[in-house]
Write a protein that binds this DNA or RNA. Structure first.
Lengths: 215, 215
DNA sequence: TATTGTCTGTGAAATAATTCACATTGTGAA
DNA sequence: TTCACAATGTGAATTATTTCACAGACAATA
């Protein structure tokens, strides 16, 4: 039962970005937008934008471009396929706290509903509107709350173990901030955000006066 | 004078990852490694690893593979082209603090030497071994310290203004954590780390049982 | 010293992603 | 109405990236 997405990772990234930009525009009263305008905001080309939007099936008109609200709807129909997933975060350090407060403010369609740590001093509290539990209760809380995604913000040494705990509890998608790739079963999706590598990348390409590596 | 790197962004990312993995291995006494072993650690294929390492010019031997220390040297020769750049961070919120303490611990070749904020309560302190200044002193400190890279960890609304301050002060590379692409001159390199998009990506591909989108 | 098996380095092939370029379309103005 | 224009949607071409697959190399073994 391994259906594959017909849309590539790169395209999904861009669609998510377009949606955020469009929501912002919509918030300030804009109604229509042309592909070249959206391209300018997203730092890419109009051809790329049109190609991406093609996949949503929504079609604009030559004279007015795209209707912003409708476009947001169409993108969302692809991105939020089956409802709003619930998320658990493990590792209530500086970074974990930063992410908790970040997501409590601007709440997109994604909700962090529980946080975990092994340090008793950090548990049984509420941070950024999110209850903090001891990691030993992970499986139980995940089951009760219907959580499907996990965020790992523990140090590198602990990351794999947390990932194992997560997959054992039935989590099917993991966003990993630890600087080490995770070994997980085939049916679990992972992505890693690697701050050090990102900096090294910028440091490298800066030397070549090369712009916009990524966005 | 716009020389371009002969190595792609993707490859640089992987080389940086390899280097970290290799340093770790070296730290625990490993001496040699085969391409398929490194591939396993990095979640990719042996052909990919060999193709990437080709670019460093270092060549392994069939029976022993690659000499780890030498390989680290070779990768570093490409990644750290002209010395260790100094970095400034702007935005001493949760995320800023997280990054400061993260980089003070595990210090790679990159050093955050100054932090900035507009909130007087956050300045004139030392966090993670890094002195915190008021943003109004940015240009001055950058000049005095010889800072070339910047990290933006302010909210979305303030990001572009900070980027302008940075480029005005002569910063030539920016890592941006605000969820909005920056407009900068052509000679300034930027990359963006977008936590929300990363989560949306994982949420999306999880539905397709699709593994390892990235790493 | 000869043999064996495994791993490297790399052209060539395959696949993926982006850009080009243009026929088509819808709208505002005359 | 009709015209002219500016923007869309999309095949086709281009460019980038990954994978295949195999000749050559080299250490261990006998």
């Amino acid at each position: 039962m391994k259906r594959n997405s017909d849309i590539s990772v790169r395209t999904i990234e861009r669609l998510a970005l377009y949606r955020r930009l469009l929501r912002d525009l919509s918030g300030r009263g804009e109604v229509h937008i042309f592909s070249h305008q959206l391209a300018e905001l997203a730092n890419n080309t109009s051809a790329q934008v049109r190609r991406d939007l093609m996949l949503t099936g929504y079609t604009g008109t030559p004279r007015k471009g795209y209707e912003i609200k409708e476009l947001i709807e169409r993108i969302s129909a692809h991105l939020d396929l089956d409802g709003e997933p619930k998320i658990a975060l493990v590792g209530i350090g500086n970074l974990g706290r930063a992410i908790l407060s970040y997501f409590s403010y601007q709440q997109p369609t994604l909700k962090i509903v529980a946080a975990f740590d092994t340090d008793e001093n950090k548990t049984n509290r509420v941070i950024g509107g999110c209850r903090c539990h001891h990691l030993r209760d992970f499986a139980e809380v995940v089951k009760k709350e219907g959580i499907t995604l996990g965020i790992i913000t523990v140090p590198a040494q602990g990351a794999q173990e947390v990932a194992d705990t997560m997959t054992a509890a039935g989590i099917s998608g993991i966003l990993n901030f630890a600087p080490v790739p995770l070994r997980v079963p085939d049916n679990v999706c992972t992505d890693r955000i690697d701050i050090t590598t990102a900096l090294e990348k910028v440091a490298y390409f800066t030397k070549f006066n090369q712009k916009n590596i990524g966005n």
